[in-house]
Amino acid sequence: MNLDFSQIAPSLPFILKGIIVTLQFTLLSAVFGFTLGTLLSLLKISDIKPLRWFAEFYTSIFRGTPLILQLALVYFATPQVIGYRISPIEAGVITFALNSAAYSSETIRAGIMAVDKGQREAAMSLGVPYKLMMLDIILPQAFKNILPALVNESIALLKDSALVSTIGVLDLMRRAQVVAGQTFLYFEPLIVVGVIYYVMVMGLTQAAQVLERRMRRSD
């Protein structure tokens, strides 16, 4: 086996730019995904049955089909159906946010259910309206409990973001493939982005631990 990293050294700046793309992409997907997931989780615990059915149906669709299919549908089918030429980045963020919302809504629902019933009653007894009760009392406690699960979801998002390389987004993965195509070296660029993904995931894990410690302040 003869590895030759020196040949791809000139392409390194090109590959490293992919970090920004991948991170941006993951961050946007996570922010939209968790926001939408929170709203879905509230539908799932609603007293109104049709809202619950909708949220459960939504989740079943996104859990029941492959992510890469959803991505292809949004990217290739959107121009055909609504006539809007969607950019790869837009298609990627929309798909990943919608998909992540389906998964995280289950986690967030469980987190809300795990908050002591007395918290809700205490807020109600003080005349706190539903929206404020959720925002200020229930959700902060729920998120604290499910932080590790949400970090897992974010890590999955970060790694799954490599799928957008299939629709032409110049993320880390795609850049490795481009370099491979130019140099006819496959192993080296793939190893390089593999290490970059790993370091990013470790960084995310560390950041989550710091955040968790801060949130445990009140214990």
Binding site: E121, A122, S125, K144, S218
Partner: peptide
């Protein structure tokens, strides 16, 4: 309440 139900994060 019997079990106080203070808001633990405040």
């Amino acid at each position: 309440f019997q079990h106080f139900n203070l808001f633990p994060h405040k």
